[in-house]
């Protein structure tokens, strides 16, 4: 009788594994099947010639039929979100790990936990209502790249705070004691000893944040992304983005060509995100090594 139960256990666990692997294989296989054939320069730049593509990169030429503006838009979003959230996240993480104590620490940590749990559509709604509110003051302000970038910064902020804080707190106290015995001020201990050691952990948080900012759709669809905008000329312009392009194509495609473009876009985004997540380990090892052992 026992043997039967054992077999049942092995069998059902095996089924679970197969289901999961099957689903992932189905998903990636389906995207590769439909997306690979369209993967190429044409996917990004439409029918433009090589020479014209160079012009596109220097903003001399507009792409009408291709992913290029969406790719640029996504890059700009990631850049804006990171450049806003990184200093804030690092600062708050350092404060929570090294300075805050007692009740303040508990309370602040709790709030960042809360922020981490807020659904991205609600963050988007916040960005949108903020725009609505500001619109009454400055009537020229409408949902735009700036608002989206800031909202995404808010979305990734808790990841950065958390990873920075944990990376620092995981370091042994002996480091702090050694540095103190050498006559280090607290700030010097943090900058010269602790942060370099915590870098791999912090770095993984940064990569996670890049991935989140690049893939999120809910936030940007409330704060200024549109289907066709070209490359934004200022922070106050509308813009395109890869995940929104995918969403839009799925519901609004009018012919086979557009659908193909959608598959191509989905494959590109999948590749970017998977590379980010898997490549992170490699880069983070290198980065910390350079900082600690290479003294030029």
């Amino acid at each position: 009788m026992n043997r039967v139960y054992d077999c049942l256990l092995y069998f059902s666990a095996g089924i679970c594994g197969l289901l999961l692997l099957g689903a992932v294989a189905g998903l990636t296989g389906f995207l590769l099947w439909h997306g690979l054939p369209v993967l190429g320069l044409e996917l990004f730049f439409g029918s433009l010639k090589i020479g014209e593509i160079v012009d596109v990169i220097f903003l001399q030429q507009v792409v009408v039929d291709g992913l290029w503006p969406a790719v640029v838009g996504t890059c700009l979003l990631v850049l804006m979100a990171l450049s806003t959230a990184l200093p804030l996240g690092l600062g708050a993480g350092i404060y929570l790990a090294e300075y805050a104590g007692g009740k303040a620490k508990t309370l602040f940590s709790l709030t960042f936990d809360l922020l981490a749990g807020v659904p991205s559509i609600v963050i988007g709604l916040f960005g949108f209502s903020l725009t609505l509110y500001l619109h009454r003051q400055f009537s020229s302000l409408t949902p735009c790249l700036l608002i989206s970038g800031l909202s995404l910064a808010l979305l990734v902020l808790p990841y950065l705070v958390r990873t920075t804080q944990t990376a620092l707190e995981d370091l042994p106290d002996s480091l702090r004691l050694t540095a103190a015995a050498l006559g280090a001020e607290k700030s010097a201990t943090i900058i010269l000893v602790l942060l370099p050691q915590a870098l791999p952990g912090i770095f993984s948080g940064v990569v996670l944040a890049i991935g989140r900012a690049a893939e999120d759709t809910a936030v940007i669809m409330l704060t200024g992304v549109v289907a066709t905008a070209g490359i934004p000329r200022s922070l106050f312009d509308n813009y395109e983005a890869l995940p929104f392009y995918i969403f839009y194509t799925a519901s609004q495609f009018s012919d086979q060509h557009e659908l193909q473009q959608g598959f191509g876009a989905a494959l590109v985004l999948l590749i970017i995100c998977v590379l980010l997540f898997t490549g992170a380990g490699l880069i983070r090892k290198k980065a910390s090594y350079r900082l600690l052992y290479h003294s030029k």
Binding site: T178, L182, G183, Y293, S295
Partner: peptide
């Protein structure tokens, strides 16, 4: 400290 020999020695100098 978990860094190079050289950096171990220059650390107190930098901090001072």
């Amino acid at each position: 400290l978990p860094m190079s020999i050289y950096k171990n020695l220059t650390l107190p100098l930098k901090m001072a």
